[in-house]
Design a binder for these strands. Structure first.
Lengths: 137, 137
DNA sequence: ATACTAAATACAATGATGTTGCAAAAATAA
DNA sequence: TTATTTTTGCAACATCATTGTATTTAGTAT
């Protein structure tokens, strides 16, 4: 896929098979992935450490962002153009308690929230847990 | 403190010095604590494993709840009476990027949020990162 | 108070997770 | 193609978390 190489190039990263595979895994799976998920998917082909470093690089370059859920840390693609300088994420994350998948709801923005005097908010991270449409039958 | 024994009793837990110490640490420190924090505070007196199991028990009994931030998992006291059957937390968590402390803003409730068709929300977890009043000068 | 029973703890062992340094390999530039 | 820089794999290490079991302790009955 030229799409992958293009994305890497935009973020000034050399194209390597590991980076292409990690990126395409994110694109295909759609939901948020932990290091362990990626190791499960690609561990035969790449060293654990390389996957860690790939995630770290993607994070710094603004290709992926952190997603927190009660099980720990996961990562998901940044849909809007994030860069090394600025990550901007005001969308909601939803974790399904049935299938266990965590997704970005790109169109659901976190509403304005009034904080007590003295608090200066900079980043927002909202996780909603419940049942997703696929499991809600 | 009789207060501690009382809390443990309400949740049908035997009073042990470890549980009393963990509980009083939560009460004194006020902010959310990780296992590592507790190990730092009480590690001389109790085995790491015991602290893990104490946290797990408190979590199950509804004495503490999980607090997520970008560094990982922490725990904070449940202010309103949670129980083994039901945890209910609709308040905001605030992490200060300067002092690194994470706190519950018990009075700041998470506003109603409209989700797309099919999503059935059950739990909300909102973390706001920024600067807290103590560090905001 | 003492003995009994169930629960909690300490310790050891193991597994999972994440990091660092360095030599070998691969990707870009010349 | 060769030179230069980046990336990868490997080994070692450090941290974090879990499990099993024998011992100890808390609560209860005697």
């Amino acid at each position: 896929m030229d799409q992958l190489r293009e994305t890497l190039k935009v973020h000034q990263l050399r194209t390597t098979t590991c980076r292409e595979d990690v990126l395409s895994t994110f694109i295909n799976k759609k939901n948020a992935l932990s290091h362990g998920d990626l190791e499960g998917a690609l561990g035969e082909n790449y060293d654990r450490v390389t996957i860690y470093r790939t995630l770290k690089t993607f994070l710094e370059k603004g290709i992926i962002h952190k997603v927190l859920d009660d099980e720990g840390l996961r990562y998901a693609l940044c849909s809007h153009s994030c860069s090394e300088e600025k990550h901007q994420h005001d969308h909601i994350h939803f974790k399904c308690n049935i299938c266990g998948k965590t997704n970005c709801l790109e169109n659901q923005l976190i509403p304005e929230i009034a904080l007590p005097q003295g608090y200066k908010p900079e980043n927002f991270n909202l996780l909603i847990q419940g049942t997703c449409p696929s499991c809600n039958n």
